[in-house]
Design a protein around this nucleic acid. Sequence first.
DNA 1: CTAGGGTTAG
Length: 620
Amino acid sequence: MLPGSAARPSLNPGAFILLLLRPHICTHESHYSQCHQGLRPVIGLEAGKQAHGIAFTSGLDSDYCVGASLVNMYEKCDEIRVAHKLFDRLPQRDVVSWSALLSAYARKGRVDVTMKLFNEMTDFGVEPNIVTGNGVISGFNHNRDYNEAVVMLQRMHPEGYHPDDTTFSSVLSAVGDLKELKIGVQLHCCLIKQGLGQKRYVRSAQVDMYGKCACTLELTRAFDEIDEKDIGACNAVTTGLSRNGLIYNALKAFEQYRDQGTELKVVTWSSIIAGCTQNGRDIQALQLFERDAECRAKAKLCNNTLLVTSMWNYCGKAAQRFALGTGIADDFYFGSALIDMNAKCGRIHMSRLCFDKMPTKNLVCWSAIMGGYAMHGKTKEAKGIFDLMQRAGHKPDLISFCSKMEHYASMVNLLGHAGKLEQAYALINQMPFGTDACVWGALLGSCRLINNVRLGEIAAKKLFELEPENPGNYVLLSNIYASKAMWSEVNVVRDIMISRGLKKNPACSWIEVKNKVHMLLAGDKSHGEMPPILDKLNELSVEMKKAGYRPETDFVLQDVEEQMLGEHSEKLAVALGLLNTPPGTPLQVIKNLRICHDCHAFMKFISRIGGREIFVRDTN
DNA sequence: CTAGGGTTAG
């Protein structure tokens, strides 16, 4: 929305346009302070187009400064073709507009075009400068073309540009991602020689690089040598330490910094929370995130990694309320986290809303929504997103391939559940980028459904190579054998399990009721409400039988051990939820193993007769 | 005269 005071004559019109264009990336405080003179920052492509319109009608669009800014704006809004067209029409093209265009192509991963234009600009009588090179490097980094970033540095050097602090900061980051410690150390030496050793960005970039290369000693030294430890340095040391498992030290650094009283930014919080959750410190993560009494009461129960999901569910909603009010949700990282969180909590529709709301999207956002759809078995939507993403010019990377893997896995699941095992197997063989455990796991699970020994053995063989430590695969295969009374094969699989020291994970489900998380083990007598839960289940099974429901006896065999102990844990959790929440409340259950067919039928039935939304997810 | 392009941490 354009501010009403747009035509305010006291403002220099050129400056006004710049104000309008700049804040969509909202980084410079100076712009904010200027904005406070009656102008509010505008965000997104629509606003940018309006600004372009005003520039056009006032004839300012031919100004070469405004032009360069417009090129930049269109690129940041993911409209590189418009940006290039605008560039071509600029009456005057100087090093700044060239640089804007170059970094635009670099950000898109168009290495060829970038380098072609880089060579071409001299023919037009415009000499690239250090900022041009830095822009290209930054663009490559942004697109995770780290190798290209390093190559660009090497290219700049003989051409007589002296790398500056910006160059070193971004190249160090790239080198870290490449884990090229040797180059990192060389750069460290170079920058000291050039007297850039005390620059702020360079310092935290060094800490970051050593962290990414797993050199915690050097990391700590680099951090200690920083005289003025600012927020960037602290974020770098925190992530660097927790990324290498030194979560205790990371927390210490974080707390030291927090207690200085300086304002913490979203990245600081998210990095320490990510550090905690990745290192099994869920409770700390929870406490850090929300020091709320209610939440802490819950934290006492939260001593299991799986409960992170539940924590996100609770904290995530609060975070979302906060984020949507402040515009933080538009941030790539936060936005992606919201998309991911909502999907994991069964709110795929909300994920899509968050995704659609983001004014500009990067690869991570696309991957998050695609992964969400894949997670929910919505293969058509996932595929649609994948195609849209490519049309939007994003090169799928490892993460999108992982999502794509999940997408394939859910296709395999769908085919398998429809009894089309051969087709599922054929699909796996056609996968263009190799396979992984989740795809084979889907096939094995499907084989168990209809007890197909031949394909089950193929899938299991792959899985035993890919994840020899996962007991679930052995159990599934032995169950397939058991269903066909192939007892000697059952014993062989059991023996392998024993010889590898693997035990079947005990089945366990979690449910959140009245802000408390309850853990239910099959046949667990320690839960205080077990008698009413069992009564409720009896009552339900009577109703179900009346409605013509017959338990699928074969599948009861599936988890003989769990069955012997009593009711499956997810049934217990649902019964607890039914007893303790008003009618119509949705129930969310998390289970550590896969849900069995019988329980699935049970859930569907309860959902129908009780008019409840029931959401059960496993650990994947 | 100035403005416009590039800097780290999840």
